[in-house]
């Protein structure tokens, strides 16, 4: 049986982690490499780095980050942010990234998914989707959830899968930051119709929320940021809790 994955997400800007981090004895809480290494020691199954660097030097700084992480880390990681064309992804592949995640760029240019899958294999391509409920329906949102599109989330995820996404990272913007739990109902609906892995994101506030999302929606992985960064949930404790509920974890 495949183990359910626990994935901490780190926001990075100009090579430094953005949000405060408040756990264990880090020499430098802003160093993404040291933080990544600590997470892998705690038993994280995978990491996601979201690079929000906005300068025109970004391709170079992101590649340097990826190289530094790949040198140290013995678990897989995904890098997202600012990947708009094949050349961006090629640089990151050769810097040692296991996967890249694309979000707005894929919505604006869906053929990018096909191009990436053809060039690097579907296992390399994570399509990240930000979704929000509007009038009883679910719509894809861009720019960190601020810009609504007319594309229904279920349709977009199906299209992304057909075009060659290897995995979907679905963030429920209505739940993100609330710490009230994942959107298990919608995640289940998506997961039941998906034949590639689904990562749940948005709403994690307690260990029970992770139990709920795996039991109720059967997603393959769950991602969170602040509950891990601030030490509110320690990964070894979370995994013990999941095991107690009969959920297979590494």
């Amino acid at each position: 049986m495949l183990a359910k994955r626990i994935i901490p997400c780190l926001d990075v800007k100009d090579g430094r982690t953005v949000k405060g981090v408040n756990f264990v004895d880090l020499r430098d809480a802003g160093d993404p490499v040291e933080l990544a290494w600590q997470y892998s020691r705690q038993g994280a199954d995978e990491l996601v780095f979201l690079d929000i660097t906005a300068t025109h030097e970004r391709r170079k700084t992101t590649a340097e980050l990826v190289k530094a992480v790949a040198r140290q880390l013995n678990i897989p990681f995904t890098i997202g942010g600012g990947i708009n064309e094949l050349a961006d992804a090629d640089v990151l592949l050769h810097a040692g990234a296991d996967k890249i995640s694309i979000n707005s760029a894929a919505v604006r240019n869906p053929a990018l998914i096909n191009q990436l899958a053809d060039a690097f294999g579907i296992q390399f391509v994570v399509v990240a989707v930000d979704t929000r409920h509007v009038d009883g329906k679910n719509f894809v949102h861009l720019n960190g959830g601020r810009l609504k599109t007319d594309i229904e989330t279920e349709d977009w995820i199906k299209e992304a899968e057909d075009r060659g996404a290897g995995e979907i990272l679905l963030t429920s913007m209505d739940h993100d930051g609330t710490k009230n739990g994942f959107d298990c109902v919608f995640l289940k609906k998506i997961n039941d119709n998906l034949s590639i892995p689904l990562i749940a994101s948005g709403g994690a506030g307690s260990k029970q929320h992770f139990v709920d999302v795996f039991q109720q929606s059967n997603v393959d992985a769950a991602l969170a940021a602040s509950v891990f960064h601030y030490g509110e949930i320690l990964i070894p404790d979370l995994k013990d809790e999941l095991r107690r509920h009969g959920i297979e974890v590494r």
Binding site: A3, I75, I196, P197, A221
Partner: peptide, 29 residues
């Protein structure tokens, strides 16, 4: 689901030396 992506248990069987000092049901990626 395909691809088979993530951590799964690996059971070594024939005393293959590349699995020396590795648990019988260790997870690999």
């Amino acid at each position: 689901k395909v691809p088979h992506m993530g951590w799964n248990k690996v059971f070594h069987e024939n005393g293959c030396p590349i699995f020396d000092n590795i648990k019988k049901d260790a997870y690999f990626y």
